[in-house]
């Protein structure tokens, strides 16, 4: 087996959870499916709108579709054999365990800071051993060197962690996707940890 086949075969039995299918979640999902991660659980309660298309992994003809269904469709275009569980729902304390309890790694990809905080605290309380990869601080453009990863036990935070005024500093593809790729790259690092190369 070549190294890439070895990596792909190791990832094919792994399961990644993605909480949110916006700019971070949709792009993380694409990178993980391309890398060969076999099982994805994606939950989101939003629909695709035109302003999403400047950074999220959706297409103009998908406007009005639920993000999870549109994303599942796009991911299956990359790999028809990928097992993608799409859940059109808000993630709450009532369903988070059944959604993400069996995942090897969980990606936090919410929009609002208070949802990020709730989810991080819930995961730390209920699944302290499960790696949680968060995104925080992805707005604007320029100075890509300010993007970083903070490691804190099983919690990983990707982004610049800087507060900005949403009205003045918009979300744009390069920075959002860079942070999504940092999350996806860390997910591979964690999923491939025990893999003998």
């Amino acid at each position: 087996m070549t190294i890439i086949q070895n990596i792909t075969s190791h990832l094919s039995v792994k399961k990644a959870g993605i909480a949110g299918a916006g700019g971070l979640g949709s792009n993380v999902a694409a990178a993980l499916v391309r890398s060969g991660v076999g099982h994805l659980v994606i939950a989101d309660y939003d629909i695709v709108t035109k302003p999403n298309l400047n950074r999220q992994f959706f297409f103009a003809d998908q406007e009005g579709q639920s993000k999870v269904d549109a994303l599942r469709e796009n991911l299956l275009h990359i790999n028809p054999k990928a097992d993608v569980e799409a859940h059109f729902c808000k993630i709450t304390a009532l369903n988070a365990g059944s959604l993400f309890g069996s995942c090897d790694v969980v990606i936090e990809a919410f929009d609002c800071a208070d949802e990020k905080k709730w989810f991080a605290e819930w995961m730390i309380a209920h699944y302290p051993a499960k790696p949680l990869i968060m995104g925080s601080g992805i707005a604007g453009y320029g100075s890509p060197e300010t993007l970083r990863v903070q490691r804190s036990g099983n919690l990983y935070i990707c982004g610049d962690q800087r507060e900005t005024n949403e009205k003045l500093v918009p979300l744009l593809a390069p920075r959002v996707i860079m942070v999504a790729m940092m999350q996806a790259d860390l997910a591979l690092e964690l999923l491939l940890q025990e893999k003998p190369l």
Partner: peptide, 10 residues
């Protein structure tokens, strides 16, 4: 001590 800042945007 770890202090993590959570910012909206995703």
């Amino acid at each position: 001590l770890d202090i993590i800042h959570l910012v909206s945007g995703g």
